[in-house]
Design a binder for these strands. Structure first.
Ligand SMILES: [Mn+2]
Ligand SMILES: [Mn+2]
Ligand SMILES: [Mn+2]
Ligand SMILES: [Mn+2]
Lengths: 217, 217
DNA sequence: ATATATTTTTAGACAAGTCTAAAAATATAT
DNA sequence: ATATATTTTTAGACTTGTCTAAAAATATAT
């Protein structure tokens, strides 16, 4: 039985590993979890003790097989609950993260399997992230980041790498949503901002925004 | 913001008050919560400090207005989640208590209001217990306990006062369920066991069982 | 190669929630 | 009314998860 805190650590380490695919630094974890590095060291040592994390002093940490399994299970729960909130309870995609942050810790295999069935075994959550299968398989997304695209190339927005409320609200305001067809029409080399064609309109977005948008091209 | 533990204490004190309608003893709380009396004293003092419980040393505790409001809100969440699990996810009534015990601590007003609407504003949970309204109103049940009924009297089973798995499983096995029409056909004065007519059959139940069954007569 | 800056770990403290053992208050029985 | 039993509280300890401040290791720059 893992504590809520342990679960949150595993989940964030998993997320960081997905990004960088190498050992994650103590500071990186601390930043993600809004704690101090010293707290992270304490927790990492405990998780290492429990065989969930592979840790060598000063060398960063990575999940063990067991730790990764646990992490994926939590991610599965998180994304299924988000899907439930949006598909069944009519929440907007920018309103569900914090609630799912709590729901993901409810422990009951049966519950999550039933929820999965009730939702019709969805493949992606409201932010376009793949929902892990019960056996731990996760569809490997290899979508193209908007910043890596050239002028006149286009694709469908399938994934949003930032689930912060402020960011999602920005997208809502600009009327940018998962499923939209986006075409790059201009790139400003000075600040890497870009002009895109979306829903019959032209929009200018900063590099900071583009970094978080992934397209299926 | 209340901790999970504080919420559980408030809820159990509320339940005990409903039964006895007077101050609840430290030992009674300890028994219900599966803790030691000393732990209860510690927590009671904290809750009293926070103005949620009215406490005088050695004289037992009762909920303050504020404490009762909190308790009812938690009960509302518990019973709505139980209803969701049974009505939407096809759980049996004896499988939902432990899961609701966790879900009740998820904090989001919006979530619970949406869930309520999604379920069609149910009045009773799967065990026949009334679901408190958002404003804190709770339908006062005054059903008759089976042990208070005379031979040849009958009614509809509307409430079950014990949510332990073992007890509910017993009822499942005997095919006794909320909504069943029950008639007392014989009372054995020696041990207060009774013979009842239910679903075209005769059944003998002990006083211990009868104590937990409430009928609308 | 050395000095400086950055990252990470350790040491020591604290709050929450629990426990055991002992003391204090209250209830019960003779 | 006193002795005995029961209930409740206190004292002190332990675990979990966090923090600050200081020490140790590693990285970077000259
Ligand atoms: Mn979480
Ligand atoms: Mn998501
Ligand atoms: Mn609970
Ligand atoms: Mn119930």
């Amino acid at each position: 039985m893992l504590s809520q805190s342990e679960e949150n650590y595993l989940k964030e380490i998993y997320a960081l590993e997905e990004l960088a695919s190498k050992e994650v630094s103590t500071n990186a974890i601390a930043e993600k979890m809004n704690t101090k590095a010293s707290s992270v060291t304490d927790m990492i040592q405990k998780l290492s003790q429990k065989g969930l994390v592979v840790y060598k002093k000063y060398q960063g940490s990575k999940l063990s097989k067991k730790g990764r399994e646990q992490a994926v299970a939590i991610v599965r729960k998180h994304r299924l609950w988000e899907t439930f909130l949006v598909n069944k309870l009519d929440f907007l995609w920018d309103e569900v993260h914090e609630i799912a942050e709590q729901l993901e810790h409810v422990s009951s295999e049966t519950l999550i399997d039933r929820l999965d069935a009730y939702l019709g075994h969805p493949e992606f959550d409201p932010h376009g992230d793949p929902i892990p299968k019960p056996n731990g398989d996760v569809v490997k997304m290899q979508n193209k980041c908007l910043t890596d695209m050239d002028v006149n190339h286009s694709g469908v927005l399938v994934e949003v790498k930032n689930s912060e409320k402020a960011f999602l609200k920005y997208l809502n305001k600009r009327n940018i949503a998962i499923g939209d067809h986006i075409k790059v029409t201009e790139i400003e080399s000075f600040d890497n901002s870009m002009k895109i064609h979306i829903k019959e309109k032209e929009l200018v977005i900063s590099e900071e925004i583009a970094k978080n948008l992934y397209l299926n091209t």
